[in-house]
């Protein structure tokens, strides 16, 4: 089973990369940009068919290692 994990900075945490990307896109002529936030995308292949177990495990992975909960949020998607 393939799981997709999105890790982003929490809503009000400063995202220096995001704002610089936004400015660069604006200077390339994309004028209607309001805001850009960037993050990490991680794919995890799991050797299980049980969605519930997988979900639990993936959440645990995020909390123990993949995300830093002090500044980041995460979202898990299972295909």
């Amino acid at each position: 089973m393939l799981a997709k994990i999105y890790i982003t900075l929490k809503k009000d945490v400063l995202d220096p990369q995001g704002s610089v990307i936004a400015n660069s896109l604006k200077s390339l002529g994309f004028n209607n940009i309001e805001d850009v936030r960037q993050g990490k995308f991680i794919e995890v292949k799991l050797n299980t068919e049980n969605k519930e177990t997988a979900n639990k495990q993936l959440n645990e992975m995020c909390e123990k290692l993949l995300a830093n909960l002090v500044i980041e949020d995460y979202k898990v998607e299972i295909d």
Binding site: K11, D12, L14
Partner: peptide
């Protein structure tokens, strides 16, 4: 932004429920 505003001082009723999200205590 709402960076580093001390946790303890945020405990007052002045702030709404999702203020947990609003107060990153570590600045980037």
């Amino acid at each position: 932004g709402r960076d580093g505003i001390h946790g303890a001082t945020m405990a007052s009723a002045e702030f709404d429920e999702d203020s947990e999200d609003k107060k990153p205590t570590v600045q980037v």
